[in-house]
């Protein structure tokens, strides 16, 4: 399978902060990849490197076999601007025409706007659009050059359910037509709805690169907290932490754990079971990584 974009052992710092720390990633043709991670994890930095906005401090970034800093390599990609930055005095029609003019085979304006539910908005000034309309326009601009590869940074943050569905449909259609998509999100739901492959990024490192199902299993962990003294060995505990008399256990099967607790006949109080957040799932993966190391 042809590799469209590639990061090889890429490290990128901002001052003393390491945004990316030895990241390697291949984006292959036809993939729909979700970059998942909390704010500040390094997702946007990775996209900025692929889009040619930043250079790595070490390692290499390739786009269609060349450097992303070369404008010719960027002919086949599309990037979403932040909707807050769209020029507010221009009309929708004008900003689409402006972006399209940069590409050898740009999209037809009417058809592009229709895909993103913006039909009839051509003459509206961007400053007068709602937040959701601006966001959809910003995402539409990533597709203005009929790209082979699009980078969508948090495409649906702040959208209502219906606008989100419209956008998801547009992304799915693009992918079904052979397009390659890299999207970042801190919503597991969004990545689950769209992506086939999930790359979990945190603190500048790739923690997991797997199918959606595999990552969902990790995120399916439960937190079991209880107040207890010394506990015996319990089955299925991925991680155990003690905070005073409170014990926090992380497990894939909370039911089995509770049955084992009861059978072991240890005294405990204040039992709580709650699903892990995505962030906690990342921590789980980190913990495994450091154990393996």
């Amino acid at each position: 399978m042809e590799t469209l974009a590639r990061a090889i052992e890429v490290t990128r710092r901002y001052g003393s902060v390491t945004a990316l720390d030895g990241v390697s990633l291949d984006i292959r043709r036809g993939e729909l990849v979700g970059l998942l991670g909390p704010n500040g994890a390094g997702k946007s930095t990775l996209i900025n490197l692929f889009a040619g906005l930043r250079r790595p401090h070490s390692g290499r970034v390739e786009l269609f076999g060349g450097s992303p800093a070369d404008p010719v390599r960027r002919r086949d990609i599309g990037v979403t601007p932040q909707e807050t930055g769209l020029p507010s005095t221009l009309r929708v029609r004008e900003v689409v025409d402006f972006v399209t003019a940069h590409y050898p085979r740009g999209a037809a304006r009417g058809e592009l706007l229709e895909r993103f539910g913006l039909t009839g908005m051509e003459r509206r000034q961007i400053g007068g659009l709602s937040g959701g309309q601006k966001r959809r326009l910003a995402v539409a601009l990533a597709f203005a050059g009929n790209p082979r590869l699009v980078f969508l940074d948090e495409p649906t943050t702040g959208l209502d359910v219906e606008a989100r569905r419209t956008l998801w449909d547009a992304v799915r259609d693009f992918h079904a037509g052979g397009g390659t998509v890299v999207l970042t999100s801190h919503y597991l739901e969004e990545v689950e709805a769209l992506a086939e492959r999930v790359v979990v990024v945190d603190r500048g490192r790739v923690l997991a690169d797997d199918t959606v199902a595999a990552v969902r299993d990790i995120a399916g962990m439960r937190h079991v907290t209880l107040t207890a003294g010394e506990l015996p060995d319990l089955p299925g505990v991925v991680r155990a932490e003690r905070d005073g008399s409170r014990v926090l256990l992380l497990t894939a099967d909370a039911d089995a754990l509770v049955r084992a607790l009861v059978r072991a006949d240890v005294p405990f109080t204040g039992l709580e079971i709650r699903p892990t957040s995505l962030e906690e799932a990342f921590l789980t993966i980190t913990a495994r990584e450091s154990q393996a190391a």
Partner: peptide, 14 residues
């Protein structure tokens, strides 16, 4: 100061 400026740099133009 506008995010539009870095966006324009992702377009295929010098």
């Amino acid at each position: 100061a506008q995010p539009w400026d870095p966006y324009m740099r992702t377009l295929p133009a010098g």
